[in-house]
Deep mutational scan, measured.
Amino acid sequence: QKPIVRVFLPNKQRTVVPARCGVTVRDSLKKALMMRGLIPECCAVYRIQDGEKKPIGWDTDISWLTGEELHVEVLE
């Protein structure tokens, strides 16, 4: 079983991306966001920890988040 990260996107959409070492959250999600007309710069990404949303940086190595759920939200 490959290491993955589940990602909840705006508009009730979601995707799953591989959690590859040395790849940033930005690079992992860029294609999924672009297909939906979004760019990382207009969004914020969060991980859910103890039921709370914790913001994470787009430059975080995605392999550190293996098995986690991330939420991407459009910044107002």
Rank of each mutant, 00 (worst) to 15 (best):
C42A: 12
C21G: 13
W58P: 08
P40W: 14
C21D: 14
H71I: 10
E69Q: 08
K31Y: 03
M35F: 08
T66E: 13
D59R: 04
Q49G: 10
P18C: 12
S63N: 11
W58Q: 05
V25S: 00
G37Y: 02
G22H: 06
E73Y: 06
L29V: 07
F8Y: 13
P40A: 13
T66L: 05
A32R: 12
P3S: 15
V5M: 02
K54E: 06
V7L: 02
E76G: 12
P55G: 03
P10C: 01
G22F: 05
V17G: 00
A19N: 02
P55A: 10
K2V: 07
F8T: 12
E76P: 13
F8L: 12
H71G: 08
Q1N: 15
T60S: 14
I62G: 03
V23A: 12
C43S: 10
V72G: 00
K54G: 11
K54L: 11
G67V: 05
K2S: 06
Q1P: 03
I39C: 03
P18H: 15
L9S: 00
I62N: 02
I56T: 10
K2D: 13
V23S: 10
F8C: 13
L75S: 08
M35C: 10
P18Q: 13
A19M: 03
T24G: 04
E73S: 07
Q49M: 11
R14I: 06
L65S: 10
K31D: 12
V7H: 00
E52K: 13
E41D: 10
V16Q: 05
G57P: 13
C42E: 15
M34D: 09
W64L: 11
P3V: 04
V17F: 04
Y46H: 14
P18I: 06
W64T: 15
R14D: 13
L33R: 02
C21Q: 15
L9Q: 00
K12F: 04
K12H: 12
I62K: 00
A19H: 02
P18K: 14
C43R: 00
K12N: 12
K53R: 09
D61L: 06
G37W: 02
T24S: 09
I4G: 05
Q49Y: 13
V74S: 13
V45L: 12
K31S: 06
I48L: 14
T15S: 05
L70M: 11
L65Q: 13
S28W: 00
L65V: 12
Y46D: 02
T15W: 03
H71Q: 13
V23R: 11
K54T: 09
T60Y: 10
A19K: 06
V7S: 00
R20N: 10
A44L: 12
V16E: 13
K2W: 01
W64R: 13
C43T: 11
V5F: 01
I56N: 01
A19P: 04
L65W: 11
H71N: 09
K30F: 05
Q1E: 15
I48C: 08
L70V: 14
G51L: 09
M34W: 08
T24L: 04
R36A: 09
K12M: 12
E52H: 15
I39V: 09
Q13E: 11
K30M: 06
V74D: 13
E73M: 07
K31N: 03
K2Q: 01
R6S: 05
S63T: 11
V25G: 00
P18E: 15
C43E: 01
C43D: 01
P18S: 12
L75G: 14
S63H: 09
G37I: 02
G51H: 15
Q1G: 12
V25W: 01
L75V: 13
M35S: 10
N11R: 06
E73C: 07
P55I: 06
K53T: 07
K12I: 01
H71R: 08
I4T: 04
I48F: 14
L29S: 01
K30Y: 03
L38C: 06
C21A: 15
Q49R: 11
V74E: 14
M35I: 12
E52Q: 13
Q49D: 11
K54R: 11
I56S: 02
V45A: 14
E69S: 08
E69W: 04
M34R: 15
W58V: 03
I62M: 09
L38Y: 11
L70Q: 01
E73G: 06
V5Q: 00
V5D: 00
E52A: 11
R36K: 09
L75E: 14
W58Y: 07
L33V: 04
C21T: 15
G51T: 12
V5S: 01
T15I: 11
L65M: 12
H71V: 10
K31P: 05
L38E: 08
I48E: 12
G57T: 14
R47T: 11
R14K: 06
G67W: 07
R36S: 07
K54I: 08
Q49V: 12
V16L: 03
G57F: 07
A19V: 10
R47L: 07
V5K: 01
E68L: 09
L9D: 00
Q1T: 14
K2G: 02
P18F: 13
S63I: 03
L38V: 07
E68T: 09
L75K: 14
V17E: 01
G57Q: 14
F8S: 11
V7Y: 01
M34H: 04
N11W: 05
G37M: 06
V72Q: 00
T66M: 07
G37A: 13
P40R: 11
L33D: 04
Q49A: 12
G57M: 07
E68H: 10
T15P: 00
Y46P: 00
K54S: 12
T60W: 02
E68C: 06
L65P: 02
Y46M: 11
K30W: 03
L38K: 03
P3A: 13
D61Q: 09
Q1I: 15
I4N: 03
L70F: 12
E41R: 09
E52R: 08
E41Y: 04
S28E: 02
D50Y: 12
L70E: 01
H71C: 12
R47A: 10
M35N: 15
L65R: 11
K12G: 14
V16M: 10
S63Q: 07
E76D: 14
C43W: 03
P3L: 08
K12V: 03
P3M: 14
L38M: 13
S28C: 02
W58G: 05
S63F: 11
G67D: 12
D50V: 10
T60Q: 07
V23Q: 08
P55K: 14
V7N: 00
R47K: 15
T15H: 05
K12L: 09
S63A: 06
E41W: 03
P18G: 10
M34N: 13
V25C: 06
I39H: 15
T24A: 06
V5A: 02
C43L: 12
T24E: 03
R36H: 05
E73W: 02
I56V: 14
T60L: 09
E68V: 10
R47Y: 05
H71S: 09
R26D: 03
E69T: 13
E73V: 06
V45T: 10
L29G: 00
V74Y: 04
V16P: 01
R36M: 05
K31H: 10
W64Y: 07
R47P: 01
R20Y: 10
R20L: 12
V74L: 14
A44M: 14
K12R: 15
C21L: 15
V5Y: 00
V45C: 12
M35K: 15
V17R: 02
I56A: 11
K31E: 08
Q1D: 15
V74R: 13
W58K: 02
V74T: 15
K31M: 03
R6F: 03
T60K: 10
S28N: 02
G67Y: 03
K30Q: 05
D27M: 06
R14W: 10
E69P: 08
K12Q: 13
P55S: 12
Q49W: 08
V72W: 00
N11T: 03
P18N: 07
G51M: 08
L65N: 10
H71D: 05
N11S: 06
G67N: 13
V23Y: 08
V17Y: 01
E68F: 15
A19Q: 02
R36L: 08
C43G: 01
D61T: 05
W58D: 05
Y46C: 15
V7Q: 00
L29Y: 00
